[in-house]
Nucleic acid binder design. Structure first.
Lengths: 240, 240
DNA sequence: GTTCCGGGGTACGCTAGCGTACACGGGCTC
DNA sequence: GAGCCCGTGTACGCTAGCGTACCCCGGAAC
């Protein structure tokens, strides 16, 4: 495990905690491994923890009765999983699943709720993050309706890339298809175009992004809208 | 104006305010008319008020750069417009527009923020409502991706109906198409089917729902998921 | 009464994406 | 070193919904 992930400040929200809150809460944080495919919660589960990713990516998926699914947002080191805990509902109708392996810090749900109801900086921070998440979900809804699979794949790659430090993603086309709510073959075709253009390289579950600027060009506006709004709402990433 | 709309308790959130908060805030409420098509805010606007509908319906739309739009949620007397005020972002990337005329109470933004930061019942209530709204947005995203226009029209009709007391909607197919993010002709076709089946009657901007049970049958699960979650999260409607 | 126009119906060709099927090749197991 | 399976490529017919065009009708305006 690289040393960097051992610092809670790798997570943008945790990094923004004021000193007093750090002293209070950081000792309660527990570093946990997040293997690919791990399910953090299923629809309706009461959440025992909140999870702050450092270098992993977690997808929030909505499931339909027929088994179909679609991703409604991606959470990386800028966020946390488990907003329902402090929003008061305790559970949500979504499923959270690890989409890119790594590590995360988790905090007991009660500890987080207690902190939230102290009504200090941390409350404001969590609410602002929640608004950013809402923006992402709404933009995803529109993107689902109006944009092509080609464009959505670009959006998805860019959003995922932002959560990582490298330009490599470990991810099969099958899984991407689940996220985007399209056929696997659709992803193959779109990814094939990007590969032929030399923008990405795809090899058995490993994607390497070679030309990010061109990826952004081919993308719909949805990526930059979400990114700008997230940057507006949240403090900048800490430079450790 | 019918007398009923003059009671703030027509709004489910306001009705759930504890006595002390009612005394404090109800005098600050201002009854305002909400004519069809009125824009409450545009993307990026800083909101001067929050709005609690009594008998009107407000749509939250996301706009794309090319002018296309899609509805991400509907707000009626169970909710409020302007969550960004207490979530901390002050503005959102959406547009709020009156989809069915009526009345609403509005409250000065600062008053609401002050109340929110008293951290009492009202804060909990508003947060739970926000979670219900998130559920609706997420379900809309999935519905956009996987379900037919036929099904989505049913969902939309049912959600709108729930915000009203009558079985009549004043709404052109053109506007419905804007909400659903589809062509006007697509709505004509789907609505035509429902009309031929005797489930609704459509006449120049007036829809009458004749057979709600059958409407629910033809609908995708998305409607009931949202309804159940909203009922779980919010206190029941007050029986005045 | 005539005109105009907003709201709605219909038709037609087109395309993106779906469902399905099958082929290929790399790396793993045994 | 043979077999197998997973991840990927490709092909083909099908359908929903799109873009476009045009028509009809009722009611308001003049």
């Amino acid at each position: 495990m690289p040393d960097a992930v051992k610092d809670p400040r790798q997570n943008r929200l945790l990094a923004a905690f004021p000193p007093a809150e750090r002293e209070r809460l950081f000792p309660q944080l527990e570093l946990v491994a997040m293997p690919l495919g791990k399910v953090l919660y299923e629809p309706g589960d009461v959440l025992p923890h909140v999870v702050f990713p450092t270098d992993c990516i977690v997808s929030l998926l909505y499931m339909l009765a027929d088994g179909a699914s679609a991703e409604i947002s991606v959470v990386g080191n800028e966020g946390l999983i488990g907003i329902a805990l402090f929003m008061g509902g305790e559970s949500t109708s979504s499923r959270a699943i690890v989409q890119s392996a790594g590590y995360a810090y988790r905090l007991n749900g009660q500890d987080l709720k207690d902190e939230f109801h102290r009504n200090g900086e941390v409350q404001l921070l969590l609410l602002r993050y929640t608004q950013a998440l809402i923006t992402q979900m709404a933009q995803t809804a529109v993107c689902n309706r109006r944009h092509s699979v080609d464009q959505q794949l670009c959006r998805w790659l860019l959003l995922s890339l932002d959560c990582l430090t490298s330009n490599q993603l470990v991810m099969t086309q099958e899984l991407i298809a689940n996220m985007l709510g399209v056929r696997r073959e659709g992803v193959t075709e779109s990814a094939g175009k990007l590969d032929r253009l030399g923008i990405i390289r795809y090899a058995r579950g490993h994607i390497t992004v070679l030309d990010r600027p061109r990826l952004e060009q081919r993308c719909c506006e949805c990526y930059s809208v979400v990114k700008k709004e997230t940057d507006r709402l949240l403090p900048r990433a800490a430079s450790l």
